[in-house]
Amino acid sequence: MILTTEQVRKIAALARIKLTDDEVEKFRKELSVVLDYVSELEKVNTDGVEEISQVTGLENVLREDIARLSEFRDAIIASFPERKDDFLKIKSIL
């Protein structure tokens, strides 16, 4: 499985990681190695096998609908990298 430079760039864009050209090439090679490595898995016959979700078989875990104000609210706001009053502030999205 050999990835193209274009594919690597597309993945990086999806993952929101800025890469230099050298890094694109480096990851292109390394990802190809990993994908090669896992390609062996095709050999396992999984016809009719349902994918697993919880390995312990747990299901139906729900909480009661009880509301509570968090004691951490102020601390969370205090840790925003930038803020305006109680808002989180960021570069303009528009």
């Binding site: 396992v44 999984t46 096998v49 349902e50 994918e51 697993i52």
Partner: peptide, 10 residues
Amino acid sequence: KAQKVRRLLV
């Protein structure tokens, strides 16, 4: 595929 093989492992 991996999650299917994983069931087989289990």
